[in-house]
Each structure stands twice: as structure tokens, then as C-alpha cells.
């Protein structure tokens, strides 16, 4: 019995260490999913947090300056409501799938002036891989995912 206990202690130590690393990593890496309208009305407290916001890249708003990038992220490509100016300052080039009307997820912080400073962008080419061929054929202008 004593022997079993000794192993239990060893296992416990390993698990506690891992749990500690997990907790530390969680605090460092966590980001909150918010929608664009939620970002606009964030409390001062929440504005400090790392956020992750999904939306669509508004047509013709992508401006590149060297590695820096500005664009407007919108809830819907058909309406001007719920939009947000995103300033990308990350080191990696934006993914190739990033383009007008692509579905994009940006990660970063909201600045006091209301713009969003992102250091990470994920993009998915929405029109093709989300919509079925048949559905798309009926709506040549593309469908909202």
C-alpha cells in the first residue's frame, strides 16, 4: 500500500505541474469571441482584453502599405451597419485567402479611437467553400454564409 501511495504522489506532482502550465498558458493566450456590434459597445474593462472578431472583408476597403494593412470588417457585405476599421500590424503576411468578401477572423485589441489593432488574421474564402455549387448558381452575386 505504501508503495502505491508513493506512485500516487509522483503522478500527483506531474499532474499539478501540468495544470499549472495549463493555467498560465490559458491566461497568456485566451481571447474572447465578440461580434462587431459587441466590440463597439465594450466596457472599459473588456476593452483591455484580447479579442477575436469574425466578419466579412468589405469590398474595396483593403489598403496596403508595405506590410501594414487596413480594411473594414463588416457583419454583412450588403449593409453598412456594424462595421469596424481593422489595422493589421502582425509580422506574418496575411493569408492568401484574404481578399474582398472573404470571411476573416481578426485577433487583437480595440484601441481607444474605436479602431481594431490586429496581430493575427485568419481568412477563409467564403463564397466558394461555404456555399454549395447549386445554391450559388441561383445567386450569381454570391450568398452570405
Amino acid at each position: 500500500m505504501k508503495r502505491q501511495l508513493r506512485f500516487a504522489v509522483g503522478i500527483g506532482v506531474v499532474l499539478v505541474a501540468i495544470a499549472y502550465f495549463a493555467f498560465a498558458g490559458y491566461n497568456e493566450g485566451k481571447a474572447y469571441y465578440k461580434t462587431i456590434d459587441e466590440v463597439a459597445t465594450l466596457s472599459a474593462d473588456d476593452a483591455e482584453k484580447r479579442l477575436r472578431v469574425a466578419g466579412l472583408v468589405k469590398d474595396g476597403t483593403i489598403e496596403r502599405d508595405g506590410r501594414e494593412l487596413r480594411f473594414v470588417l463588416a457583419q454583412s457585405i450588403h449593409s453598412d451597419e456594424n462595421t469596424m476599421v481593422v489595422n493589421y500590424v502582425g509580422t506574418a503576411p496575411v493569408p492568401d485567402t484574404f481578399k474582398d468578401r472573404a470571411e476573416a477572423v481578426v485577433e487583437g485589441k480595440r484601441l481607444p479611437d474605436g479602431t481594431f489593432e490586429a496581430d493575427h488574421i485568419q481568412a477563409k474564402c467564403a463564397s466558394k467553400y461555404e456555399a454549395k455549387y447549386g445554391a450559388d448558381a441561383q445567386h450569381p452575386e454570391g450568398v452570405d454564409p
Binding site: I18, F21, G25, Y26, E28, G29, K30, A31, Y32, Y33
Partner: peptide, 18 residues
């Protein structure tokens, strides 16, 4: 009721020592 992602730092923090 709120979606939270943990990101690469979480995975690295655990898996590097492991």
C-alpha cells in the same frame, strides 16, 4: 455563454515541458 479561444501560447506552454 461566451466563446473563448486559448491560442498557441496555451498549447506551447503545456506541450514544451511535456
Amino acid at each position: 455563454g461566451e466563446q473563448v479561444t486559448v491560442g498557441a501560447p496555451f498549447f506551447n506552454k503545456i506541450n514544451v515541458p511535456i
